[in-house]
Amino acid sequence: MGSGLIQEIVPELVYSFPIFTLDFCALLMEEIRHFYGSKLPARRPNSMNNYGIILNEIGLEPMIFDLQDAVIQPLASVLFPMEGSELESHHSFTIRYKGGEDTHLDVHTDDSDVTFNVNIFGNYTGAPLVFCGINGEPDHRHFRTAYQHQLGYAVMHRGRHRHGAEDITGGERMNLVVWSYSYNYRHSKESVKVHLKEASKPDERCVSYTHDRDFGRYKAWPPGKKERFMGRGWCPPRGKEYDGFIPDVPDDQLPHRSKRGGQPQQ
């Protein structure tokens, strides 16, 4: 960090640094565009992105392991020594934001120990990456900063750091994401999730329609999301609510599943 190459986006929590040349970004995008053009089937990379590609499934797994060994592991062991000292596996994929496709990413935490996220195509406007707090902490739904991706630059953070991508307003943004895992960390007492009582009401930019029980109190529901997610959130956990908390749906009116295991019933 003393070299000036690594910048603290959120002190001691989120970092940014240059990693790919513009030529390499162009070559990687060419490979990805070729795959899209092939019309071969591709699984969704996760439950929230519909237009990405799992890189291990298109022949790029060796490259990602080299990237993890040469860049992600050494940096993670210094920046996040608890989670990042022994990374031995990963899930790598692309995410794409574009009008008419995925235009944003709801606020969430990652299923990773350390997340590495680098912009590889940046002809776009909007879509800032919003960072809030660490999942389970009293201020985990409080806004910290908004980061605007730069072509060839990576951001690195803990998987349990709450974040999301706001709406893209023009063009297309493509990022390469590597979720890294540590077996030893995941089997340590330090990895046990503990939720503390929220200190106060959340900031508007840090509420999640997918996960939060009070989203509608702070933001308008995006089209189609209210019908799918209202009353199905878990955050904040019961007993950990801030003073004055009011859920979108009272507990006695929550949807429930039928005894035969069918779809949620109202």
Rank of each mutant, 00 (worst) to 15 (best):
L87C: 07
A199D: 09
Q263T: 10
L27G: 12
D252N: 11
G59Y: 00
G37E: 11
P11L: 07
R43G: 11
G152D: 02
G100H: 03
E12Q: 14
L55G: 01
Y218N: 01
R257D: 11
E198I: 01
N117C: 06
H163S: 12
V192E: 04
F121H: 12
R232Q: 11
L75Q: 07
P264L: 06
C25W: 09
V107I: 08
W234D: 11
V78T: 15
N56M: 08
E101I: 12
D111H: 12
K259F: 09
P45C: 03
R144F: 12
A42S: 15
D139A: 07
V178H: 02
H142F: 14
R228F: 02
N175R: 06
L254Y: 04
G224W: 02
T145G: 03
A26V: 08
W179L: 02
D248G: 00
A26E: 15
A127S: 13
E204T: 05
P247E: 01
R162M: 13
R44C: 08
C235P: 07
V14R: 01
L28G: 03
P11M: 10
H108T: 10
V130H: 13
V10W: 01
N184Q: 15
S85P: 05
V177D: 01
D251G: 05
E88W: 07
G171A: 04
I246A: 06
T103V: 14
P255C: 12
Y218Q: 03
I168F: 05
F215Y: 15
D214W: 00
Q7P: 05
I120T: 13
F245T: 07
Q266F: 15
I64Q: 00
H90D: 11
S208C: 14
I64N: 00
V114I: 13
I168T: 09
I64M: 07
K201Q: 14
G52N: 03
S92K: 15
L40N: 08
I32N: 03
Y97W: 04
A199P: 02
T94D: 08
Y97T: 01
D248Q: 00
